[in-house]
Structure formats: structure tokens, C-alpha cells
Design a protein around this nucleic acid. Structure first.
Lengths: 207, 207
DNA sequence: ATATGTGAACGGCTTCACAGCC
DNA sequence: GGCTGTGAAGCCGTTCACATAT
């Protein structure tokens, strides 16, 4: 693939633009100007246009953007043709909540399986995917050639599980564990640090 | 308070440094050099020192940092003396998982109550705080003078609930709803966009 | 001698302003 | 005329390199 070199903040906003475009499609709006879409996404019109320029010439000067065309153009870059396989590791409270979260499915991800050291605990809980024993983790990753993992284990197990996953072929991790993971530079980790997020908020509102 | 003007990325990392320092305290390490702490936090030593310079002169040249002193210095800036009141709105799967998440408590936040349009659904579920009807939301915020809220309602309700919360006195929102919230500029919103986070990851690993 | 603290250089993202196209 | 697309300018955070302190 020849995409690449779109800055990370831009990729992030492209996801947001596409969610806005979905709403426009649902309400049968056919075209939109940069000002309108920028307002929906809470960004400046100039930023929206600059962001879109990374994916090429997608609008019509003097008119604006065709909603469906723009959606497809962004989807080609940020989206995936087929569902992308994802596994979730650590089926505690947070892990189970994420399993039930429908937003991943909506955006084209298939959470194939979850793994936990105590899979029997969730035996009687209805979940949208099977929960296997942690001991099957690496076999599964290798067999299914999964590349992405959502990590929700307690902090003290984060690094060890990560090492095993990377050995098995995982190259991208969405990390909810409150630890800094050490990984080779070709492996990508996106951290969602809930406590730090609240602390950040707290700092700035207590000016 | 005279703090302020510390850049947001720095505040974010200060939270991380303090989590590392906690571990050092637990293992009875008394001093640490910028190189060591930077390694733990996965940042460059120069960045660590620059970050710490925002809170003043906290190390000893030629020696390094005293672990407990540094911890306290950061805590004075980023932490809070007492527990800070927080409410959670939307006690669905994700909301309930966050209620059970102990990381907030550990970092000095007290989730006082949750609110949901159907509080009866969670009547028989054991949770660490009471769940009230959504109709009591604004009264509670006013009476308890809560300033921070964690928002986990479905996207379509996000904006309306937000408006009501702001009217009642909320000034900071940690938003897990997949919508862009429109708020006055004195109100702070930190977004945790789970789907966008996965899409971002997916984009960069499929180079 | 050694490690911090910091002004200066650097790099990357955002914003501007206008050229280009409908 | 109107709105997009984009080079240039501006801004902000990161990295460097060395002055400073012990």
C-alpha cells in the first residue's frame, strides 16, 4: 500500500469527519461546504481543507464536497475493505465493557475472541465473542494471523502479555493498562490512560 | 491558584512520571537520575528534564532526583489535596466498567454517583456508588458543587446531557460518547474516542 | 566529575491568505 | 462570485548543547 505519511493528528480527525459524514448521509444531505463540516467536527475550515488535501483533490471549487464521494474517499484511506481482526486480552470489567461496545463493529473491526487467565469466571455471562484461556493466546494469534490487540489486563501483567503477543505476530496494541509498554520500534502502541485523562482535566479546570 | 500555563502534553506526562515514581517508592529506591526515570516513562532524558523544569528546580545537579521529594512536587501541581468530586453519566456497559475501575480512586478522584435514564436496570448490580435517575442530575451537581463529569451516554444524547450539566455547574467533561460536543470555551472537554483510536492504529500498522 | 536546568535550534502541525478552478 | 486547494508564515512542543550547580 502506498498511503502512509499522513500525520497522526490528521488520521485521527479523518475518523471524526467520516462520522460526521455518516450523519449527513443519514439525513440525505448531498453536498457540504468546508465551513459546515468544520463546524460539525469543531475544527477551523482551513484545517479541514488542509486535512482533506492529504487524500487528494476531493471537493469542487466554488461548490463544496459531495457527501457520499467524500465519505468514500476518506474511507479508502482510513477504513478497511474487509473487517479487520482484533483480539481483546483481559476480560475484566473494562474488557467486557469494550467487548459489548458496538462502535468497533460499526467502524469495521471484528473482535474475534477475548483471552483471560480465568475464562471460567465469565462462563455464564453473555458476550458477543468467545473467551478463551490465556494459554491459547499465542496459538490463536498465529493461526488467525491477528495483527491488532486491545489490552485491558491489570498493570502488573501488561508487559509480559505484550511480549508474548508481539512474538506471536501482533503489531498494533490499543493499551488500556496503566503501564508504559516497552516495545520494538516497529510495533505501534496507542495508549488510553484513563487516570491521566482525568488528572489532565482536573488540572486545567482548577486554574 | 497560580499554577497554569503548563502545556497539556506536559501535564499528561507528569501523571505518568508520578506513576513511575510510585513504583520506585514501593521498591525503596531513594534517588533516580533523569536517564532512569526517562527510560521508565519511555521519553528522552532531555524531555523529562524540560518537563520537570515547569514545576521549578526539583533535582540536585551532579546527583539526580530524590524520589519522594520529586513525587511530592509533581503531586502538588497535578494532584489535588482532597479527593475531587466526579460524577458519571450513563451507566451502560462502559459506564459501569468505569465505575468499577479503581484507577480513578487511586489517583484521588471520588466518583460520588452515577446517573442513568433507567436506574432500575442496575438495581441488582453491585456498584461502588449509587445510581440515580437522570432527572436528579442537575440538582445533584448544584447541591454537591461537582465540577467534573465522565460522560458515557449513547451518542444521540451526548449534547443534550452536556448542556444540562454545564448549566448546573460542570466545567470539565471526560467524554466517551462518540460525538463532538459543542461547549462554551471556558468549559473543557477531553475526548476518549475508542473507535478513532482503533482506526488510527489500524492505519499506521497497514503501511 | 557528573547530572541538572535552560536558552536556542529544530521540526511538525496549524493557520493564514491567496491562487486556482468551477 | 464563491469555495476549494496549498505554499508560506506562524506557533508550539521537542531536542540539543552547554552553562550551572554540587
Amino acid at each position: 500500500m502506498e498511503k502512509q505519511d499522513i500525520p497522526s493528528p490528521v488520521v485521527y480527525r479523518l475518523s471524526i469527519y467520516n462520522r460526521c459524514l455518516k450523519r449527513l448521509i443519514a439525513s440525505n444531505k448531498e453536498t457540504i461546504r468546508s465551513e459546515g463540516l468544520a463546524t460539525m467536527a469543531n475544527v477551523k475550515p482551513s484545517q479541514l481543507r488542509k486535512d482533506l488535501s492529504y487524500i487528494g483533490q476531493v471537493g469542487t471549487r466554488g461548490l463544496g464536497y459531495t457527501v457520499t464521494t467524500l465519505y468514500k474517499s476518506i474511507h479508502e484511506i482510513v477504513g478497511r475493505e474487509q473487517f479487520q481482526k482484533v483480539i481483546l486480552v483481559g476480560a475484566g470489567n473494562l474488557g467486557r465493557a469494550l467487548l459489548r461496545y458496538d462502535g468497533f463493529q460499526k467502524e469495521g473491526f471484528e473482535v474475534m475472541a477475548a483471552f483471560d487467565t480465568s475464562p471460567e469466571v465469565v462462563k455464564n455471562i453473555s458476550l458477543p465473542c468467545p473467551v478463551y484461556s490465556d494459554s491459547e493466546l499465542t496459538n490463536f494469534i498465529e493461526k488467525e494471523e491477528v495483527k491488532m490487540a486491545i489490552l485491558c489486563v491489570p498493570g502488573e501483567h501488561g508487559q509480559h502479555v505484550t511480549n508474548r503477543m508481539i512474538d506471536a505476530g501482533i503489531t498494533g496494541i490499543l493499551n488500556f493498562s496503566p503501564v508504559i509498554l516497552k516495545v520494538p520500534e516497529e510495533i505501534l502502541v496507542n495508549n488510553v490512560d484513563l487516570a491521566a485523562e482525568l488528572e489532565n482535566l482536573s488540572y486545567f479546570i482548577n486554574k
